[in-house]
């Protein structure tokens, strides 16, 4: 911890906007939260495209959305809508995780 102490001691005025260190354990916890969020979202990514649109489409086609068979609709429409949502959810959740561990890239 010597370098960390030295660092914060040398720059007391730097405050929130200055350079700062995070501990290795905090870094690992941050990365783990990122990976599990990613895992969940990629699971949904797989489920709506490869799952609903290809592997289970015959099963889903017994249901319909409007007049379109559901599996077919997922392959040509639904998967795309979910993809858009996934990216914005990731962006929002990731920002929260980054702030929690003080590694975000917000100005000031």
């Amino acid at each position: 911890m010597a370098t960390s102490d030295l660092h914060s001691g040398a720059e007391p005025a730097a405050g929130a906007s200055g350079d700062h260190n995070i501990t290795e354990s905090a870094f690992k916890a941050y990365w783990k939260e990122n990976l599990s969020l990613m895992g969940i979202l990629l699971g949904i990514w797989f489920a709506v495209s490869f799952g609903a649109g290809i592997l289970f489409r015959d099963f889903l086609d017994q249901f319909s959305i409007g007049t379109a068979p559901l599996g077919f609709w997922f392959a040509q429409q639904g998967a795309i809508y979910v993809f858009v949502i996934l990216i914005f959810v990731y962006s929002f959740m990731m920002h929260r995780i980054e702030r929690k561990y003080d590694v975000d890239d917000d100005e000031g």
Binding site: M1, D19, H20, I22, T23, E24, F27, E98, V103
Partner: peptide, 19 residues
């Protein structure tokens, strides 16, 4: 690799006294 995993340009991972 650790650096690029952290979005902030100002936060760094400290590896303790071993360094």
């Amino acid at each position: 690799v650790e650096e690029i995993r952290i979005p902030s340009a100002k936060a760094h991972v400290s590896h303790g006294p071993a360094e």
